[in-house]
Design a protein around this nucleic acid. Structure first.
Lengths: 136, 136
DNA sequence: CCAAAACCCTATAAAAATTATAGGGTAATT
DNA sequence: AATTACCCTATAATTTTTATAGGGTTTTGG
């Protein structure tokens, strides 16, 4: 399951993309429009900022805006920042690899093979950019 | 992420399939060979029995065996029994549909479209049968 | 200058899901 | 009749997810 955090993150980035004229957008505005608990959103935004997906401006007319070309922000990227691996089991994750510590031989583990294949099928869909997502 | 329960279930069914000569196989045997906590396994087995994936025999030489043709048991079926929906968001699940309660219009929700597409790509992989899984 | 708006940060609480165990009951075989 | 092994409900332990608390800092605009 996609966590709410990740879903909120995707919504937030989509919102910033579609309201990029009035930059920056305050967390309060996003919170109200996307119905995301304010303090929870702040937390997500900080994580997105750390990973340089958004940038922020402090002060009275401050807020957030995209830190990079929306053609270079993918849904998979957001999911990895917020939730971690895309893969359904850690032993087939490329960026968050972890041994499952159960099978004796990872090379021949059939569950691993199946979920490796699954990951391969999932990626092209999730590698869609925010611009592509907005056009759906 | 795939839950341990679901992973154990897949392992269990694979084990039963590959040891179908010596039917039935006791929970204890499966527990030891697949390193699954005994009482946890019993619980999983009961759920699989309720859904008629395995059948059981009581008494001194009792145990479990497949209740149907392994060509008709898919990984997706096991996952749905144990974990519920395959889809990463409930509003695109066919068998476990639930409104996400967030978007104003489900028909135009782009996150929903993306994850509907994702589900479509995932299914063919997970619809593999135990026989196919064993051959990987 | 100063008050208001809005970002910044750490900690913690509340809730839910996952994982596992306890403790006994029932059926069948040897 | 003793042993083996399935059957069932409840609950405990752990982890993850979701959210809130409570304050601090920066900047703008009157």
């Amino acid at each position: 399951m996609l966590s709410k955090r990740a879903k909120y993150a995707i919504k937030t980035i989509l919102y910033l993309y579609e309201n990029k004229e009035q930059t920056p957008v305050s967390a309060k505005t996003i919170s109200e429009n996307e119905r995301i608990p304010y303090k929870f959103l702040e937390n997500i935004l900080r994580e997105l900022k750390t990973h340089q997906v958004v940038k922020s401006l402090r002060g009275a007319v401050g807020g957030y805006s995209l830190a990079k070309d929306p053609n270079e922000i993918t849904v998979s990227h957001l999911m990895r920042i917020i939730d971690g691996p895309i893969a359904l089991i850690p032993c087939v994750s490329e960026r968050f690899y972890e041994s499952c510590g159960e099978c004796t031989d990872e090379e021949t583990c059939r569950i691993r093979k199946l979920f490796g294949e699954l990951r391969t099928e999932m990626l092209p869909v999730l590698d869609k950019t925010i611009v592509e997502l907005a056009r759906l």
